[in-house]
């Protein structure tokens, strides 16, 4: 059986599907997104079964979570929660990205800036930020500022350090190439260093955004009971477990979708050669 298949491949002849399994596997190979769907189906199926057993009375099924989600969208509580949560998140991520990438590039280009700035962010990255989030409340109260600061505290260090490493590891031969064709320092930075550093920079940005989500949830759970964090806390306190899970799952989905969106943005605008792969 195996040898005959190998022979078939070697001669380049088109094989007829021998059975359903092979036909299926061929279909999956030609359409990779089917694997993604299969993976999610498995996850949600397992969730549904675990909820049906049930493994805990506080663990709802996937279908009841989906229904709860629809209810919360219809009654507007979900929409309003996201309206509150996304404000500090977007603000914090935007500030962290702009500040983080600029600081990172600056540190990557100048040894003195590296000595001055790097230690601060290395300490910040190592520090357990969740412990510092309540301190922010003492200074800035429970408003938008405190939540935004929590996002920045978590997102900024990883973005700065990755951008800086990205610039440090730019291919020196490309920089020499730019110099040999009399590129100015600015052309060198814009046309060579930033594009060459962008994959690592974007990896940092993805980690930073993921950390930003952690920051905003921590702020909403620990400091200011508003937004999605409040939705989770409230439904837990009244034992609406399906609604609580719907809120938790929704923030995971939003986080995943934003990261995937960032990835396609990068491929589209900065590294066009990756689209072709």
């Amino acid at each position: 059986m195996t040898s005959s298949v190998k022979l078939g491949n070697a001669t380049g002849a088109h094989e007829a599907p021998v059975n359903v399994g092979q036909a299926l596997s061929r279909m999956f190979d030609s359409k990779p997104f089917l694997w993604t769907i299969a993976s999610l189906t498995l996850l949600f199926g397992a969730w549904e079964i675990a909820g049906l057993i049930p493994i805990s009375i506080a663990f709802p099924t996937f279908s009841s979570t989906l229904v709860a989600f629809a209810q919360m969208v219809v009654d507007g509580s979900m929409v309003y929660a996201y309206f509150l949560t996304l404000q500090p998140l977007l603000l914090g991520v935007a500030v962290s990205a702009a500040l983080g990438i600029s600081l990172g590039i600056f540190m990557g280009l100048s040894r003195k800036a590296e000595w001055l700035i790097a230690p601060v962010f290395i300490v910040l990255q190592a520090a357990p930020m969740a412990a510092l989030v309540p301190l922010v409340t003492f200074v800035y109260g429970i408003g938008l500022t405190a939540k935004t600061l929590a996002v920045i505290m978590l997102a900024l260090p990883v973005i700065v350090l990755n951008s800086y490493k990205a610039v440090r590891h730019v291919n020196p031969s490309l920089v020499d190439m730019c110099r040999s064709f009399q590129g100015t320092r600015l052309q060198q930075i814009v046309k060579i260093i930033i594009p060459d550093a962008s994959p690592v920079m974007f990896a940092g940005l993805r980690l930073g955004i993921a950390a930003g989500f952690i920051g905003v949830m921590l702020a909403e759970l620990l400091i200011t009971p508003t937004g999605v964090g409040d939705l989770i806390t409230y439904h837990r306190s009244v034992a609406n477990y399906a609604h609580m899970y719907a809120a938790v799952a929704s923030i995971i989905v939003v986080s995943t979708v934003s990261l995937a969106g960032l990835q396609s943005f990068e491929a589209r605008f900065l590294r066009p050669e990756k689209r072709k792969r």
Binding site: L174, M177, F181, P195, P272
Partner: peptide, 25 residues
């Protein structure tokens, strides 16, 4: 003009843009 041992081509640019890069600068 310099020709590099490791080619020093910009991986994000097409052959056209790479060849024209000296002129672009």
């Amino acid at each position: 003009a310099f020709v590099f041992q490791d080619f020093a081509l910009m991986p994000w640019a097409t052959v056209m843009r790479n060849v024209a890069f000296g002129l672009e600068l």
